[in-house]
Nucleic acid binder design. Structure first.
Lengths: 238, 238
DNA sequence: CAGCGTCTGTTCGCTAACACACAAAGCCAT
DNA sequence: ATGGCTTTGTGTGTTAGCGAACAGACGCTG
């Protein structure tokens, strides 16, 4: 279902938690506190210890490999369908990637200790997060092929669609510069692809403010990876 | 340590299992049977149910996204440092990728039921496999950047080194055609890169038989991803 | 030893994306 | 309103890798 034109005012839930039995959901929410994440806020850097887990409710974040011998590359976009701090599920407390906030908004936060307690006490939570991990691994291999074979314009269209889903709005903030970092291409490449999309009236943008005008058109331009990744999630966790 | 010039005759163990306490190792080995995998043998296809888990002892396998709108692409190379059937660790019984044998040799095989029993009864096994999963996820993101940014010649050199490690020999079988499928490039691209390496006397090949002549030289040509991926494994599981 | 399939080498034209450099336009603050 | 910063647009030349097609070399098998 395509999001409404305006941000839905209704309170959003995190989809990993919403599907749990009431008891289990209470168990984890009782250990959580609501926080507001600001755009650009950095949640983790490679090599750091993971202090908190986050369950986004109406915000979304990018996980990227930081610029090293290359320019940087997004490996995952997480909204209220996922969580931040997945290594904790496996008992690992060190992250290898940078996480930063793409779209500002509320999330549940709990300490790694609190998360572990909840995980030990709720089999339903553990089972669901295990399924989530499997989806992530498969989405990662999909992203691998996508990044290798598909053109920048298609990959950009895909990113915009995913972002629209996670923003729950057809409007969100992101500059060409940032997109270049996420897609692993030059900023100029983004400008070229984006203006092509704008020329076809699929999107409109202006100084970092992007609006999706024609979602169906974007889907036609995006590679099949868009639908495939979402379908996999729905099939396992939906 | 570089492998010997000839295949080591000593019986190899699977490194995930070898590090377990004796009790736990017995637990899982008692449910396993030794099998010989033949080169080219297909272990799984996308969408299939996972019937068995495998712990390679002296063989190695490729996991690939099958050719779809593109040519195919290797997502993982597994030898006696890993296992086949990782979704089972998360309680998932469906695979999304093709698995086939790259280098023939012995492995332990056990049914998915047997694997689950062992997993339930051995916390040490579960903990170790969880760590393995975390390593895999990180290696996948690394592969993503590598595939995006590095040149074919460097990626080929990396693959040869990884393959040499897993073959425990400086000689193994693989054609340019297969390599093209694994690296996600045209066969011609492999031929070009491989002849460059051969011209510099780093390798020798002839009709699918490849020999590594100068490992240090190959390492110089390969991208840093080679060392990084191995180091991550050693750090967590070594 | 004839024949066929497999494997490797080479060529030609093409294009997506690169690197570098600079211009213009919008927005904010002093 | 002016100067400075951020964001977007454009232009030139280069390159790695693509697609398609073909030729030679090796090795097995009948």
């Amino acid at each position: 279902m395509p999001p409404d034109s305006e941000k839905t005012p209704a309170r959003l839930e995190n989809r990993l938690l919403a599907a749990l039995p009431t008891r289990d959901r209470r168990l984890i929410l009782s250990r959580s506190e609501p926080v507001e994440l600001r755009r650009g806020e950095v949640i983790s850097e490679p090599g750091e210890r993971i202090r908190n887990a986050y369950f986004p409710t109406d915000c979304f974040l990018s996980l990227v490999t930081p610029p090293a011998d290359h320019s940087g590359l997004e490996v995952r976009l997480v909204g209220n369908e996922g969580m931040i701090g997945t290594p904790l599920i496996l008992g690992v407390e060190i992250t290898q990637i940078r996480t930063f906030v793409q779209g500002a908004g509320p999330a549940w936060r709990l300490s790694s200790e609190g998360f572990h307690e909840a995980l030990r006490q709720s089999e339903a939570l553990e089972a669901r997060l295990h399924c989530y991990l499997d989806v992530l691994m498969n989405q990662c291999t999909q992203l691998l092929a996508c990044t290798r074979f598909h053109l920048v314009e298609a990959r950009l269209a895909r990113w915009l669609l995913m972002s629209q889903d996670r923003a729950h709005s057809d409007h969100f903030h992101v500059t060409h510069e940032i997109l270049a970092l996420l897609l692993g291409v030059r900023r100029v490449g983004v400008t070229k692809a984006a203006s092509a999309l704008q020329a076809r009236e699929l999107i409109h943008y202006r100084r970092g403010e992007i609006t999706v005008l024609n979602r169906a058109g974007l889907q036609g331009t995006a590679c099949g990876c868009y639908g495939a990744a979402e379908a996999l999630y729905e099939q396992v966790l939906g």
